[in-house]
Design a protein around this nucleic acid. Sequence first.
DNA 1: CTGAAAGCGCTAACAG
DNA 2: CTGTTAGCGCTTTCAG
Lengths: 338, 338
Amino acid sequence: MAHKTTLKAIAEHLNLSISTVSKALADSPEISDSTKLVVKTAARQLKYRPNAMARGLKSSRTKTLGVVIPNIMHNFFAKVIVGMEEEAAKNGYSLVTCISNESLQKEKQSINMLSDVSVDAIIISLSSETQQTEELEHLNDILYFDIPLVQFDRIHENLNSHSVVINDFKGAYDSVMHLHKTGCKNIALLSILSDTSVGKKRAQGYEAAIQELGADSKIINTKLEHLEKDLSDFLEENELDGIVTTDESSAIYAMNALRLNKRAVPEDVGVIGFTDGALARNYFPALTTVKQQAEIIGKRTIQLAIESIESKTKLEPVQEVIETELVIRNSTSPVQQK
Amino acid sequence: MAHKTTLKAIAEHLNLSISTVSKALADSPEISDSTKLVVKTAARQLKYRPNAMARGLKSSRTKTLGVVIPNIMHNFFAKVIVGMEEEAAKNGYSLVTCISNESLQKEKQSINMLSDVSVDAIIISLSSETQQTEELEHLNDILYFDIPLVQFDRIHENLNSHSVVINDFKGAYDSVMHLHKTGCKNIALLSILSDTSVGKKRAQGYEAAIQELGADSKIINTKLEHLEKDLSDFLEENELDGIVTTDESSAIYAMNALRLNKRAVPEDVGVIGFTDGALARNYFPALTTVKQQAEIIGKRTIQLAIESIESKTKLEPVQEVIETELVIRNSTSPVQQK
DNA sequence: CTGAAAGCGCTAACAG
DNA sequence: CTGTTAGCGCTTTCAG
C-alpha cells in the first residue's frame, strides 16, 4: 500500500514547514523564488496531488457541481450532460450526476447526498413525480442553506432559482404552423408529457396555433406503452393529417402505428417530433423535428451555476429561454406554394 | 445565510459533548438509550446531516465511486450507467461520472480529479485513444496507490485489475452463424471499432466463424462518417448478402446505404448489429441485434468495485464475461429449414 | 455512561 | 521570507 504524498511528506522530505510548502505551491508572494522552485520540483517528483476533501473542509468550496436528471436514456438529457460536462471542465469544476428515474423519492435522496458531499451548486431537471405532486420542500431546503440552485428544462416557477428552458411554447406553435403550410387541416397533439412543465407549455403553444388557424383542437394524452393503440383508436373515429408529438420516440411510434393503419408519411399525414436525436435523423422517413439545442442548455445552466457560486451577492433569479429550431426532413410534405 | 447544523451545534443545544453526540448518532453501545433518543430527536429537528467531507477526511472512505466512460451519447454506455447508478445507490454509494470523449488527455484529467476527491474506487471503460496508444501510466498510478480499479467493456489486459466484458467473440461468431443459417453466403464485417479491444474481439469471432464455414473473410474498417460511401464502393466490386456491424448506428447507416444501392433488407442482404437500443427496435425494418445486457454489466462492475473496497485483502483480478443474446428481428431473413 | 483530546490534510492569520 | 498555530467537522482512543 503506497501512501499518497501529503504536504507533510514533502515538508519532511525538504526540511521545511508544512505551511511554507503550502504557500510555495500556491505561489504566494511571501515565498522566495528559490524555495518555490525546490518545493515544486519535489512535489512533482513525489507526484503530489492536493487532497480535495481536506481543502474543501477548510474552504467549503469543493469545485464540484451536483446534477440530477430524470433519465439518462433520453437523448435530450444525455446531450445536456455532454454540454454540462464540457463547460464544467473548462472552468475547473467536476460533475457528480444522479438519476432520479422520474421518482420524487429518488430525487430527494440525490439532493440529500449532494448536499452531504458539499457540492458548490445543485442543478436539476425535475422528475415527473415531483412536477405532479408539486412537493418542493427538499429543494427549498437547498435554497434555505444558500446553496445555489439552477433548474433546467423541467422546472417549477415557484422555486426561487435561476432556470434555463427551451421555448416550448414556440416550438409547438411553429410545428403546427409548419404542418399547416404543408397543407394539413387536422392537426393533433400527441403527448406523453402532459404532467410535466414542458408538456404543458407545448400544449399551450399547440392550442394557440390551432386557435389562430381557427381549427379544432385534438389533444391525445397517452403513455409510450399505449401510444400505438391509442393512436389507432383515434384514427378510426377522427380525421387526421398532421401530428405533433412531444418527443422523439413518440414520433417514431406514431409513424409505426400509421404504417400499420395504412397511412403514408408524409403523404397522408405529416409528423413532427421534439428532440433531434439519432432516431430522428436516421429513421425512414427521416423525422422533421424541433431541435432543442441541448448542449447549449447544458452550457448555459453550468454558467449560471458558476456565476451564482462566484458572485458574493445573491443575484435575482433569471430565466434564460433558449430558442428552438425546426429541422425539416422527410416526415412532412414540402411547403405548398400559394 | 442559514448555517448547516453540525455536531457542535447540536451538542451545544443539548449541553452535551461533541463526542457523545457523535456516538449517540452512530448508535454506539457506550451511550444510554435515553440520551440516544434525545440526541436523535434533536438531530432530526435541526435537520442534521453529517458532512461527508469531514467524515471522509477522517476515515478515508467517501462512499463515492468514480466512473469514466468514453461517450454518454452511446446507448450502450448510457444503459451501463443506469445499471451502475442503481446498484451503487442500493449499496449507499454515489457515482461521480466523467466523460473522456475518447481522448487520452481528458481521461487522464478525469482520473486525476477522481483521485483528488478521494473516490473509493475507479471504474473505467478506456477511451479509444488510450487503447490505440496503450498509454496506461495514469491507470497504473491508481493501482499503485491501492485504489480499487475495475475496467469494463473496453479494457486492457495488461492492467492488473478486475474487469467485466461481454463475450464479443461469441456475439460476432453467433451473428455470422445466424446469417449463414438464413442463407447468406457472402458475409462481411463492417467495423468502426477496429482500434478498440471490443472491435478486435468481434473481428476474431467473425474470422473464426467465417473460417469454420470455409467462406471468404471480408472486413471493412471505416468510420461512421465514411461508412455509407465505403460500403457503396465495396458493393460495386464484391458479392455481398450479409453484414455484421460492430454497433447500432453502423447498422442503420448500412441499411440506408443498402437502400440507396437498391438492395432490399433482408431479402438481398441480411444485417445484424451490436447494441440493442431504441434505434434497433424502432427502425424499419427492425434490426436483428446482439443484445449486450448493458445494465447487467453496470451492476456487476459496481459489485466488483464494492467488493474490492470492502475486502481487506487484495483479491486476485477476476474477469467476468457476460454472455450476449441474439435478438432476432426483421433485418434478417427467417432461418432456412433443411 | 460521558467527556477531553488528538488528528485526518489543508489553509491562513499571526509571529518571528 | 519562514514557521507556529488554530481550526474546518468528524471519529476515535483514552480517561474519568
